[in-house]
């Protein structure tokens, strides 16, 4: 299924609007990043800031903020979690979020009530693919890395 060139990974977990991806790690922690469609909307990302490790972030309070052009804002957060670390490489070179959004993770977090609870309400697999493509088509987003 073509999603206007926007890259999708079925094994990851996504919010309703497909702004972020979340990966389950073997140790029960979660890795968070921006989706291809999300970095496309943002445009060239110039700054990324992740909250200090050890900070607890409830749903609605962002784990990280980004800036592109003259826009600044949060990467949304939907989980009750504690920050383990930000990706130093991405913070030093934020354009990695544009070039390689699924490898350029933003933060690793520890879910306060466990991964299963944190990922309730997220979409994954084929269901997520359908939703992701629908969002891309609805908002007429074209992911073109060149």
């Amino acid at each position: 299924m073509d999603c206007n060139g926007c890259e999708f990974h079925p094994e990851l977990y996504y919010d309703d609007e497909y702004q972020i991806w979340v990966r389950r790690e073997d140790d029960g922690n979660l890795t968070v990043g921006m989706t291809d469609l999300s970095q496309t909307i943002a445009g060239k990302i110039l700054h990324v800031r992740v909250r200090r490790p050890g900070t607890r972030r409830p749903p609605g309070k962002p784990v990280a903020t980004i800036e592109s052009g003259k826009w600044a804002g949060p990467i949304p957060n939907f989980m009750d979690c504690t920050i383990i670390e930000g990706n130093a490489e991405v913070m030093e070179n934020p354009s990695l979020l544009n070039a390689d959004p699924y490898n350029a993770w933003v933060a690793r977090v520890e879910p306060v009530d466990g991964a299963d609870k944190a990922l309730e309400g997220f979409h994954t697999g084929d269901d997520a693919r359908k939703g992701y493509c629908a969002r891309v088509k609805k908002d007429d987003i074209h992911c073109d890395k060149n």
Partner: peptide, 9 residues
């Protein structure tokens, strides 16, 4: 009527 940041500006 758009999510495109450039178009909004």
């Amino acid at each position: 009527g758009t999510a495109d940041m450039g178009a909004i500006a």
